[in-house]
Structure formats: structure tokens, C-alpha cells
Amino acid sequence: MCHRNRSDSMKSDMQLKKDVEQELEWDPSIKAAGVGVEVHDRIVTLAGHLGSFAEKLAARRAAQRVEGVKGVVVELDVRVPNQDQRSDEEIAAVVRSVLEWTAGLSEKSVKVTVEKGVVTLSGEVDWGYQMKVAEDAVVRLRGVVAVVNQIDVRGSAGAADIVGKISAALTRHAQDESRHIDVSVDDGTVTLRGKVGSFPERSIVCNAAWSAPGVRNVVDRLSIGA
């Protein structure tokens, strides 16, 4: 998705507010009329209500896409429309089916509990990317108000081994970008720092980190620029 590029130093809070509002309106997955935008010291606050948890996440990503934004605070409520409301039992059944069909995760590996539309995932998986795939599949379901991901990753790997495998993957898929990226690991949490040229390149880097064995979480601190 294209977005507006301006130099950070040229943007006031007022300009950032306008740019974020335009980005929200430009994204077809978001009903921008339900979102209020405030900006202070380049920190964007989104308030209001939206019709789904997926839409709430999309609004956060839209604000993060705008160049010059230093941080995003999300104070959005999810109010599920009547036609999309589901009982907790219905949601749990659909989540169970989705996890098995899209991620190959059985009830033995991932447990599902639902309370007032809030889905909690728990259990253990072999790979960090499975934990991420499970969450991504559930957030899009109708009737879901929020997702709490408590899935753990089995086993462990040394920091040097994780960094080595991520660096090798980056060299294969994004060789130019790999020279500008710093990878650090602390107890299975990978932190990415540096600069990439575009959002697709950013996705390549993050996906490479998630695919490394022993990774439990990925913190994306990458910036986008020439």
C-alpha cells in the first residue's frame, strides 16, 4: 500500500494528524469515521470505536505507516455489529476449526478459551511462526473482540545460532537490506534495528526472524527510508 512520504523534520503534529487521518481514510479495511486522531510530540493517539478487532489492528498499522510517527497509542473499543455477533461457544468452535485447517494446530498443542468475545490461545508449539500464524488467523474472525496470545514455543536455541540463521535468511532474500540491519537476541526475543527501503522489504526481514528456530517473539524497530 502506498503512503505519503515527507521528511520527518518538516512535519508538525498538525501535519502528522492530517496525514494519519488521510491514511485511515485511504485504507478500505477501516471505517475512518469511527476513529479520532490526536497527536502530541509525534505520538499518535487513536480513539473511538470500530466494528472488529481486525479493523482495530488495521487502524494501528495505518498510523504506523505514516512517516514521522514516533509511536501509536490505541484507545479504540470494538463494538461488534448485531449481524456479526456470535456466542462464545460459536466463536470457540470456529477458532478451533481455523487453527486446525490453516495452521495444523490440534487441540493437544493449542487450547482455546473465549469469554465475552475475547479469545485466549494457550499451549505449546514447535516454532515461533506457528504462534504468529495462529494469532493472525483468529484476529480476522467475526465476533472476536480481542485476542490474548499465551502460546509458548518449545525448546530453545543459543543467541548466536538464532542470529546466524536470521542473517543467512536475510542474505538469501534481502541481501542489500541485510547490510543495514542489526539483529539482537535475548531469551528468544529478537529485536530488529536498522533501515529498509520499503514495507515489502520490512515484511521479508520480519518473516525471516519469525522463521528462525528458537524465536519466541520479534520486536520490529526497523525504519523505512532511502
Rank of each mutant, 00 (worst) to 15 (best):
Q22P: 10
V190P: 04
R42G: 01
D152S: 15
G36K: 10
R216G: 02
V114Q: 04
G71A: 15
V133C: 05
L99S: 06
S211T: 07
V163R: 07
Q130C: 02
G194P: 06
V219E: 08
A47F: 01
V138R: 00
V78M: 09
L16M: 08
V139W: 03
A103Q: 03
G48K: 03
R79I: 15
R42A: 04
E23Y: 00
G123I: 02
D182F: 08
R142P: 07
E107Y: 04
D126S: 08
A63G: 08
A33I: 08
T189L: 09
G48R: 00
V205P: 03
K111E: 09
S184K: 03
Q130M: 06
I204N: 06
G128Y: 06
S52Y: 08
R140K: 15
E67I: 07
D19W: 00
D8V: 14
R79H: 05
K132N: 09
D8F: 11
V145G: 03
A54R: 06
E124H: 09
G71N: 15
A174F: 02
V78R: 06
R79K: 15
V37A: 08
V153K: 01
N217W: 14
K132R: 13
V35W: 04
W127P: 01
M131P: 00
P213S: 07
A32I: 01
R96F: 10
M1K: 08
V110E: 05
A208C: 13
L105P: 04
I166R: 01
S178T: 11
K18Q: 10
E201S: 09
W26D: 09
K111R: 15
R179S: 13
A93W: 05
V37M: 05
S203C: 07
D186Q: 12
L46R: 01
A103F: 01
R154N: 10
S29N: 10
G164R: 04
S9Y: 11
R61K: 15
V215G: 01
I91L: 09
E135G: 06
H3Q: 09
N5G: 07
K18Y: 08
I30N: 03
I43W: 12
M1L: 13
M131Y: 01
E21T: 14
